[in-house]
Design a protein around this nucleic acid. Sequence first.
DNA 1: GTCGAAAGATTCGATGTCGAAAGGTTGGGT
DNA 2: ACCCAACCTTTCGACATCGAATCTTTCGAC
Lengths: 163, 163
Amino acid sequence: MRDAVDGISDQWARALPDLDVTPMHVVGRLSRASRLLERGIKDHLAARDLEPWEFDSLLTLLRSNPEHTMCMKDVTAAMLVSPATLTNRMDRLVERGLVTRSQAPGNRRMVLVTLTDEGARLATEIVYSHVANERRMLDALDPAEQELLAGLLRKLLHSLGDG
Amino acid sequence: MRDAVDGISDQWARALPDLDVTPMHVVGRLSRASRLLERGIKDHLAARDLEPWEFDSLLTLLRSNPEHTMCMKDVTAAMLVSPATLTNRMDRLVERGLVTRSQAPGNRRMVLVTLTDEGARLATEIVYSHVANERRMLDALDPAEQELLAGLLRKLLHSLGDG
DNA sequence: GTCGAAAGATTCGATGTCGAAAGGTTGGGT
DNA sequence: ACCCAACCTTTCGACATCGAATCTTTCGAC
């Protein structure tokens, strides 16, 4: 069973025989798998009129705490995006009525964002089918393989500073 | 040894106890690992005044065949980007003198792109340190673990249609 | 108290990406 | 011969993202 990266590896063996491309076997596949999964998620959400970034935002707040409230800085860290991007995203979620902005009591530098009732309802409603969609995309791996894969990735992530 | 996804998993257990988030253990980590690796690659290339998309383009042509020539369609498939994006990318690589455009003999629908001597020289010069950088980022996993990880990802990619 | 540095969010400008539409080319069916 | 559907690339418009600069607020040093 060969995949696209096997083909790329063969090409390198012909083009630069002295280049050891072993690291690409992992990095290349991680990159491609991530993009293909992202595409599958996007397609699933499109049927519900949601962009991936909108859904990510809602889920981040939904799981944060019972009040569904976070400050901008913490959201940027959780979502791995720049502050500028987050300001823009929250602007549009506020416009759609899924999120509200407010001042943090005791520290006027911070801005708090909170899910509205509709935002929480929408996120809760969709997260189940979203996870089901992810499960379907991982079907090729049995539970033991998925656990093994998750464990290896955890080790890698830890070394990359994602703790 | 816990990572960020373990923390997210805990949050879900508190927020929606009846939601089985097992698929996120894999999908979430794949997504985060891919983004962190991409960041490391970007930083490494920035020191050489190259953007990741420029480097990807050069490598795709370098390994393609001894003539370093491909048609646009094949490049889009290899790089997983839209045709519109590729036209834009090749425009700028031609401007930088790293790539040339030409008509395919016998089929005027196709446009061929070819590495210039400087493009091939630049790509060949940088690919070695690039792979070394990837190897360094994977250091936390020993060779057997890397092979195991690559094998699991291959199986997943194959089922996602990346053959 | 006051000043200066650091923290946090926003604005601004530039850029990269995509989807849809358009333009030219090819080949098959009749 | 001709047409039409499929193919390949490019153009166009919309939009998301980021880095750098800006603005306000906070906190510590003195």
